[in-house]
Amino acid sequence: MEESKLLLLLLPVLLIQLGLMIFALIDLIKIPYTNGPKWMWGVIIVVVNIIGPILYFVVGRRNY
C-alpha cells in the first residue's frame, strides 16, 4: 500500500525528470558542438539523475 502510494506520488517527479532528459538529448543532437566531447554529455544526461540535464544546459551548451 505504502509503496504504491509512493510511486503514485513520485510519478510527476519521474515525468519531469524524463522530460528534462528528452529536452536535453534533443538539444544535444541538434547543437553543432558542445563544451567538451558530445558523447560525454550524452552519458551525463542519461546517467546522472536530474542534475545531469541541468548541468548540460548550464555548462555543456556553448551559449557563453
Partner: peptide, 18 residues
Amino acid sequence: RNYKLFWIPAVFILLGIT
C-alpha cells in the same frame, strides 16, 4: 530555444515536490 523556459520551472517544481 535554449530551453530555459522549460528547465528552470522544471527544477523549481522538482524542488517543490521533493
